[in-house]
């Protein structure tokens, strides 16, 4: 792993506003799959795993492997063709609204209103989670502090740097204190400092008991953050386990080498 791109910043203290929730098994995924109408092959098939509170799972795979499909199923954006999903022992589809209250989703794109300020964006999305009055004000302030955007809070997002937009993009998903946070390549295209802030923040969240599911093409991030990884290819799980255990098992030097060994050097354009 190339350590030269990781710049150490002072780590944030464990935030007091992420309250650990009393659940034993946070997420259980069994035989999850999605087959698009008209497609020859499933976009995702047989995905099975469980996640405990505070645990971080990395979903790896080349383009078209099924990572984004998995995230869209886990976030309730799409309904699976096969399999079951339960959060805190309750099936997603028994009460999808309740599930959505417990899940935070950070999309790959900057899903923000650029003409609004950071504070206005947060206040709007907080309202969509039913937060209002002093509670909303408090949550917005906490998330601004958590993403280190207090000084820029009242400036329009269009004036933010790429890293600031990414941090705000993440802060929106934390407004309602989710038990499970889904991150779809949250550090694409940002500088090393902002990336490190995001990674540190995620570690803080995990320490506070939030379950994280993380997709990224940056192997060093996965090694740094994740307790377990699942490597997908063409919609199927090709291996899973603890990163170091898998590296040793396949006699590789790091996760990047393991990834190439398992998925091949062929270019994936999809």
């Amino acid at each position: 792993m190339d350590q030269s791109i990781v710049v150490s910043l002072p780590k944030t203290t464990t935030p007091t506003f992420f309250i650990p929730l009393p659940v034993n098994q946070l997420l259980t995924v069994d035989n999850l799959g999605l087959h698009y109408a008209g497609a020859d092959q499933p976009a995702l098939s047989g995905l099975t795993f469980s996640l405990a509170p505070g645990q971080t799972l990395g979903l790896l795979g080349p383009n078209g492997a099924g990572k984004t499909t998995a995230i869209s199923l886990l976030s309730t954006l799409r309904q699976p063709s096969t399999g079951t999903l339960s959060l805190g022992g309750i099936s997603y589809y028994d009460n999808i609204r309740l599930a959505r209250h417990k899940i935070g989703f950070i999309p790959q794109d900057i899903a923000l209103y650029l003409k609004l300020s950071g504070r206005e964006n947060l206040a709007y999305f907080a309202s969509l989670y039913g937060l209002h009055g002093s509670k909303r004000h408090e949550r917005v302030a906490n998330c601004l502090a958590f993403s280190r955007l207090e000084k820029m809070a009242d400036r329009r997002v269009s004036t933010y740097s790429g890293g600031m937009k990414r941090r705000l993009n993440m802060a929106v998903a934390l407004l309602h204190q989710p038990q499970l946070l889904l991150l779809d390549e949250p550090t694409v295209g940002i500088d090393a400092q902002s990336r490190q802030v995001i990674l540190d923040s995620l570690q803080d969240l995990a320490l506070a008991g939030t379950g994280l599911i993380y997709t990224s093409h940056y192997m060093e991030e996965i090694e740094q953050l994740c307790d377990t990884v699942i490597i997908l290819d063409n919609g199927y799980t090709i291996t899973n386990g603890q990163p170091q255990q898998l590296i040793n098992q396949h006699q590789c030097r790091n996760l990047g080498e393991l990834f190439i060994k398992l998925t091949g050097r062929e270019l994936r354009e999809g």
Partner: peptide
Amino acid sequence: TTGTMQRLLVMPSPLAIL
């Protein structure tokens, strides 16, 4: 096109209300 709709779709508030 910015992914904001994806974000709105996974929120508890019904899209019709928005």
